[in-house]
Nucleic acid binder design. Structure first.
Lengths: 217, 217
DNA sequence: AAATTAAATTAGATTAGCCTAATTTTACTT
DNA sequence: AAGTAAAATTAGGCTAATCTAATTTAATTT
């Protein structure tokens, strides 16, 4: 139906629209897709021809409704495959991204829905990212960065903003796992470090960088 | 590593070598790959450059050892994914081929082996085709065509030579399933039809065409 | 062995997706 | 408002994988 490349552009545009606002710049896309700007311009023209995006020369791109549907479908598929890889095949959460990047492009509606059922209709992937439902609806999360909590406040660790293996590994080593309750015991003004209490027992100190990678509810 | 296209050529060459002898002709490949002959010539040159095949102008192709390893790896992966689709996701045996054609190209050694383990190290795919082991060894089958049996002889239904959905559906409808014991009760000389006894109870009549699609052991 | 037919190759194009270099458009300063 | 910097586009090329038309090589028939 659509090439892997087109699907990757759609996904990238979708994510940029989510985080950086409605209209996406050529340069931003070029950076995310790791190609040079003229390649993006080329591709956007082709995709506009297929009604996947609306593109105005030098004015950036937006997804059409159809483009959004495809993008969300890919994301749904990606996250379901991640659950499969972790829950069924025994991969660790920091190992699945690249494989899921490939598997996500193998999707018929039927396959995705059967996989969803097989996995028990999971609501989030191994990193806590919500899985869109079969209609392309993505539940709005009201999770906030751990770094926005004040001393004494607490929340449940429900997701990460940093998906790099390095960060995920750090969390493993620090003993911070999805679902844990995290309470901010202290914030050191001097160097912006946080003292946390995890699961009402152990206490640890993390940097601001780490606190910015953790989402709590 | 290798493109999907290269992998498909390797698989096609492998299968043609198995059935039609050591050396594969350009025209045979063109037919299987559903492309025109000059495309094959082109591709063979590229693949010879990568040491995946040995190719002599106008003399046909053979796989190199490396080419064979890759081809068998793809077949292993294809068959494991078919088992997954049928056993885990609930697909029927006539529905999985096209999906597995895509999934087969997503393969790291690790993924394939984890999938193998998850599926319980199956020895055959849903059509009875043997699954190569992790070292690329494919068990030699001594199955024979049902059409070669004489009256009174019997065997266990262990595979098909015709993988089309139409044929597989016919077998479903006729109540002939993998693993069934099949005994030839009679062969009608006039029109080459076979009267079979399935699982020591029901008796059915099949055509020669069907008898040529069934492998027994 | 010559002639014919069939198979394979070469030559020259096409498309998707990418590139670099040059140019144009937009945005930002002063 | 003019000048500069940054962003985007056009122009022209490249590669993988395909095509058609023309040619060459191999196989088969007389």
């Amino acid at each position: 139906m659509h090439s892997f490349t087109e699907e990757n552009y759609l996904k990238a545009i979708y994510k940029l629209q989510e985080t950086n606002g409605e209209v996406v710049a050529t340069s931003a896309l070029a950076q995310v897709m790791e190609v040079h700007a003229p390649s993006v311009t080329d591709m956007l023209k082709r995709m506009a021809g297929k009604k996947l995006v609306t593109y105005q020369k030098s004015k950036g791109v937006k997804l059409t409704e159809r483009g959004r549907q495809v993008a969300v479908g890919i994301i749904r598929n990606h996250r379901l495959w991640e659950v499969f890889l972790v829950d069924k095949l025994g991969y660790k959460w920091d190992e699945v991204h690249d494989l899921a990047e490939q598997l996500e492009h193998i999707h018929t509606e039927d396959l995705t829905n059967k996989l969803d059922k097989f996995l028990g209709f999971p609501k989030a992937d191994p990193h806590g990212d919500p899985i869109p439902d079969a209609n392309g609806v993505l539940p709005k999360s009201k999770a906030v960065l751990l770094s926005t909590l004040k001393v004494g406040e607490e929340g449940m660790f429900t997701g990460v903003t940093d998906h790099t293996p390095a960060f995920l590994n750090y969390l493993d080593k620090a003993g911070i796992s999805l679902g844990n309750n995290i309470k901010v015991k202290a914030i050191e003004e001097f160097d912006q470090t946080y003292t946390l209490q995890i699961k009402s027992n152990k206490e640890i100190i993390i940097s601001n960088k780490v606190a910015n990678g953790i989402l709590v509810n």
